[in-house]
Amino acid sequence: MARRENPEINAGSMADIAFLLLIFFLVTTTMDVDSGIPKKLSEKTTDIPPKIKEKNIFPVLINRNNELFVEGDVMELKDLKDAALKFIDNGGGLGNPIGGEGEAASCDYCKGDKNPDSSDHPNKAVISVESDRGTEYGTYVAVQNELLKAYAELRNRLCMEKYNISFPELEKAFKESSNKDLDLKAKVKYIKDRYPQVLTDIESADVQ
C-alpha cells in the first residue's frame, strides 16, 4: 500500500492575511492622547517691556498645596471667574488706543464698578498666573479654565449687545466662510480688540 503524503499548507496566503489584519487594526484603533492648554508662546524680543501699573495687574498664585491666592487673599476656585471678570470689566480709567489708532478713551461698554484702584480698561488689564513647582497640573488647568471663562463671558455679552449673536457663533460663521468674509472678520476683530485676552505665566517658583 502506497504511503499517503500530507498536503503542504501554503503559508504565503497566511502572511498576506496577517498583514492585512495588522493594517486594519492600525487604521481603526484609537489612541489616547494627552491634551493640554492651547496657548501661543510669546516670541523672544529685545524690546524693553512697557511699565504696567500695579492696579492693572491681577495676580493669581497657586502654592504647592494647590491653594489659590488672588491679590494676596485666599480664594476658592469657584469664585475666581467672577473676580477676574470684575477686574477686567472695571473700566476705571483710560485705555490704550484700540487697534493702535485714535486716542486713549474710557470704556463705554464696560459695566464694572469703575473703581479707581482697579484696572483702567480691558485692554490694559493683565492677568498674571504664578504657580509653584509642586502645583498639580490639574489645579493649574482648572485655574486657567476659570480665567478663560471670564474673557469668554465678556466677549459673548458684548457680541450679543452689538450684533445680536453669541461670540462662539460669530467665530464659527467666520471660520465656515474659510476666513474670507470681511464683514465677519471685522466683527470678530471688534470684539477681540475690546476684550483682548491677556494672560501671562510667571516661571514656576517656590510659592509659599
Rank of each mutant, 00 (worst) to 15 (best):
L158D: 00
V70M: 05
A186F: 12
T30S: 15
D181L: 04
P49N: 04
N96P: 00
I9L: 14
S106W: 10
V70Y: 07
D47M: 07
L147K: 00
H121T: 01
N63A: 10
A104I: 04
E146P: 02
F87Q: 08
T28D: 08
R133C: 07
D108V: 13
E101K: 15
M160H: 02
H121N: 02
K44P: 09
T139K: 13
E153S: 13
I202M: 07
L20Y: 09
D117C: 00
R3G: 00
L182Y: 08
G36N: 12
T29Q: 14
A186T: 13
V141E: 13
L61K: 15
A104N: 12
L94I: 13
S166M: 06
G95K: 05
L147S: 04
A18Q: 09
P59D: 07
L182N: 13
D201V: 07
K40C: 08
K114E: 10
P196L: 01
G92Q: 02
E161T: 02
N145S: 15
K78L: 11
D183I: 13
L158M: 10
V33W: 11
M31Y: 15
T45G: 09
M160N: 08
R157V: 01
E130D: 09
C107P: 00
G92Y: 00
D193T: 05
Y190M: 09
K86S: 15
Q208K: 13
G95E: 05
G91D: 04
A2H: 12
V70H: 05
F24E: 08
I37C: 07
L77P: 05
K175D: 14
K124T: 02
A18Y: 04
N123F: 03
S166I: 02
M14C: 04
D201M: 09
A173H: 05
C107L: 09
M14D: 08
E5D: 11
K78Y: 10
K55Y: 00
L94M: 14
E176M: 07
T28R: 15
K172F: 10
F69N: 05
K187Y: 06
A125T: 03
L26K: 06
T200L: 12
L148K: 15
D34V: 12
M14G: 02
N66F: 02
K78G: 09
D47H: 06
N65L: 12
I57T: 05
S131D: 06
L77V: 10
A173Y: 01
C110M: 05
P7A: 10
K53A: 12
S35M: 15
I62W: 03
L154Q: 02
A18M: 11
P50D: 04
N164M: 06
R4I: 12
I17G: 00
Q208M: 08
V33G: 03
Q197P: 00
Q208G: 14
E43F: 05
S35E: 15
E5T: 14
V70I: 09
D183Y: 06
I88W: 05
V126S: 04
S131G: 14
V143T: 02
E203C: 03
R157H: 08
N90V: 08
N63D: 15
N66A: 06
T139V: 08
K55W: 02
N10Y: 10
Y195A: 01
D206E: 14
G93C: 07
Q144V: 10
T46H: 04
I191M: 03
G102C: 09
